[in-house]
Computed example of a mutant assay.
Amino acid sequence: MKIDPPAPSPTPLHRTPATGVAAPATGTEAVERPKEAAQASAHVHSMPAAVGGSDFNAARVAAIREDIRAGRYEIRPERIADGLLASVRDLLDPKGRE
């Protein structure tokens, strides 16, 4: 039986504006990336409010997180499958297209 060597640990990547090519972040760049990510995240979360509404329900998300932590969250594959099938039907429905 052959056992592969362990994969290398992930290295944070960032895009350079001039080339647009991803390169590993090193030194202080790696430390500063979480700050930029937090700012971007805050900006993204403020966007739905700026356009007049949001489908985000913070109380529901908090309840789901707590259920996951407590081991009470129940995944129902049949409900997921039904939702996916309904979505595909909507996409394929010629009546819905103009």
Results as ranks from 00 to 15, higher is better:
residue 60 R to W: 13
residue 47 M to E: 11
residue 23 A to Y: 06
residue 44 V to C: 04
residue 85 L to C: 05
residue 19 T to P: 12
residue 64 I to R: 13
residue 25 A to M: 07
residue 68 I to G: 08
residue 20 G to D: 07
residue 86 A to S: 14
residue 45 H to L: 06
residue 65 R to K: 15
residue 63 A to I: 09
residue 42 A to L: 06
residue 16 T to D: 13
residue 92 L to K: 15
residue 90 D to M: 02
residue 5 P to N: 11
residue 65 R to D: 14
residue 35 K to H: 12
residue 28 T to P: 00
residue 58 A to H: 02
residue 81 A to E: 00
residue 17 P to A: 05
residue 54 S to T: 15
residue 72 R to P: 02
residue 75 I to E: 08
residue 4 D to W: 06
residue 90 D to H: 02
residue 88 V to I: 10
residue 62 A to Y: 05
residue 8 P to C: 03
residue 32 E to Y: 07
residue 9 S to T: 08
residue 84 L to I: 06
residue 52 G to K: 14
residue 38 A to C: 10
residue 98 E to N: 11
residue 44 V to K: 03
residue 78 E to T: 15
residue 32 E to H: 12
residue 31 V to M: 02
residue 53 G to H: 07
residue 90 D to A: 02
residue 22 A to V: 02
residue 40 A to Y: 11
residue 72 R to S: 04
residue 23 A to V: 06
residue 47 M to N: 06
residue 33 R to G: 07
residue 28 T to Y: 00
residue 69 R to E: 14
residue 63 A to C: 02
residue 65 R to F: 12
residue 33 R to I: 14
residue 48 P to Q: 13
residue 89 R to L: 08
residue 45 H to C: 02
residue 69 R to G: 13
residue 55 D to P: 01
residue 8 P to A: 05
residue 9 S to V: 10
residue 80 I to F: 00
residue 59 A to Q: 08
residue 10 P to L: 15
residue 18 A to T: 04
residue 62 A to T: 12
residue 29 E to Y: 01
residue 25 A to K: 03
residue 24 P to Y: 15
residue 27 G to D: 07
residue 97 R to A: 10
residue 26 T to I: 08
residue 16 T to G: 07
residue 82 D to M: 15
residue 5 P to G: 10
residue 13 L to I: 10
residue 81 A to K: 00
residue 2 K to G: 00
residue 47 M to Q: 14
residue 43 H to I: 00
residue 74 E to Q: 09
residue 10 P to F: 15
residue 4 D to C: 09
residue 46 S to H: 12
residue 45 H to E: 06
residue 57 N to L: 04
residue 1 M to L: 01
residue 57 N to P: 01
residue 84 L to G: 09
residue 51 V to I: 02
residue 29 E to M: 08
residue 83 G to P: 11
residue 89 R to M: 06
residue 15 R to H: 13
residue 76 R to N: 14
residue 34 P to F: 02
residue 39 Q to D: 05
residue 93 D to M: 09
residue 72 R to D: 00
residue 16 T to F: 09
residue 26 T to P: 01
residue 45 H to T: 02
residue 7 A to R: 02
residue 13 L to Q: 06
residue 33 R to Y: 11
residue 59 A to L: 07
residue 85 L to Y: 00
residue 88 V to C: 09
residue 88 V to R: 08
residue 55 D to G: 07
residue 45 H to R: 04
residue 68 I to W: 09
residue 43 H to Q: 01
residue 53 G to Q: 09
residue 49 A to G: 05
residue 53 G to F: 12
residue 77 P to T: 14
residue 88 V to G: 10
residue 56 F to T: 14
residue 56 F to D: 15
residue 62 A to W: 08
residue 25 A to I: 08
residue 82 D to F: 13
residue 39 Q to C: 03
residue 92 L to M: 15
residue 56 F to I: 15
residue 39 Q to P: 00
residue 19 T to S: 14
residue 49 A to R: 06
residue 69 R to S: 13
residue 60 R to L: 13
residue 10 P to N: 15
residue 14 H to D: 10
